[in-house]
């Protein structure tokens, strides 16, 4: 029974991380209709920036957290200005694929830049907390608890930004009907920039939390990004509540499979899940009925 609770705790923690990773992806997909393949590298960047500021420069922890958010936003903004905007301007039919390829290029460059600056050896994120507390039958490590709280907090901030601010409404409007939003006076270009910066900031936080759980390495973000993609597809690309829900569900399932059958079967299971869901419901579990199928 103890293992059941251990699996539950680790599943929920990982789920929280997947959820904020997929929120970042889903935001961009929803508003721009493209996938940012550099999202994983942006996660990695967030983790390393915090490490560099706290351990490297010896500055206080909150400043490190702030720096990873700021650098994430900056990276997102640069990816928009240098790559995405220009590819969208080419007005070619296969812009989806071209944005993906170009952002993978950016991801490789970013990942390698990190490797050159920090080296390839795994590093320990300084913002770790030891100890645990008991909650009924659950033994929750403080580390996991803090990650979960921070993730939920991040989600709440994004949700209220999107739901209760003028800019948030403009972002959702652009995602739902771009031309109509432009007719209302929304500058789509600016919305796109803000969305990518927001997604970058979220990636920064996510990378920081992620690196507090596992160790820092230049490929830190790749695996979570691919899994976050799977979550987004299962949920229906662009559906934020769906992405959060599916992230927790699949993370719990993954944790259980990894415990039952060994760690190597976690990812194949996710892949099977997404194939089954897509055959059964091509627009995802909670996606709009409009099917992206020809």
């Amino acid at each position: 029974m103890n293992t059941f609770y251990a699996v539950l705790v680790s599943g929920l923690t990982v789920g929280a991380l997947y959820a904020i990773a997929s929120i970042g992806l889903s935001l961009v997909w929803g508003a721009l209709g493209v996938l940012n393949m550099a999202h994983g590298a942006m996660l990695t960047l967030g983790g390393y920036v915090a490490y560099g500021v706290i351990t490297g420069l010896g500055l206080p922890v909150p400043l490190g957290i702030f720096a990873s958010v700021a650098f994430g936003a900056l990276a997102g903004g640069l990816i928009y200005v240098l790559i995405v905007r220009n590819v969208l301007r080419q007005a070619k039919a296969d812009f989806e694929a071209n944005v993906m390829i170009a952002t993978v290029g950016a991801a490789i460059a970013l990942e390698n830049g990190i490797l050159l600056v920090f080296g390839g050896q795994p590093l320990r994120q300084p913002v770790t907390v030891s100890g645990s507390f008991e909650l009924g039958p659950l033994i929750v490590p403080w580390q996991n608890f803090i990650i979960m709280v921070a993730a939920v907090l991040a989600m709440a901030v994004i949700a209220s930004l999107l739901n209760y601010t003028r800019m948030g409404r403009a972002i959702r409007a652009t995602a739902q009907n771009r031309d109509a939003a432009r007719l209302m006076g929304v500058a789509a270009d600016r919305v796109y920039l803000i969305v990518l910066m927001l997604s970058g900031a979220v990636a920064g936080i996510c990378g920081l939390l992620l690196s507090a759980m596992v160790q820092l390495s230049p490929s830190l973000g790749n695996d979570p990004m691919l899994k976050a993609f799977i979550m987004c597809v299962v949920a229906g690309l662009g559906s934020l509540p769906g992405a959060v829900l599916v992230s927790f569900g699949l993370a719990l399932l993954e944790a259980w499979v990894q415990y039952q059958f060994g760690a190597r079967w976690g990812f194949p299971l996710l892949l099977c899940a997404v194939v089954v869901v897509l055959i059964w419901r091509p627009s995802g579990l909670l996606g709009k009925t409009e099917v992206r199928r020809m």
């Binding site: 790559i83 220009n86 590819v87 390829i101 993978v104 290029g105 490789i108 460059a109 990942e111």
Partner: peptide
């Protein structure tokens, strides 16, 4: 690093 930049730049 160069390969990544070449890919991104050539798409753009």
């Amino acid at each position: 690093l160069g390969l990544g930049l070449i890919i991104a730049a050539s798409i753009v």
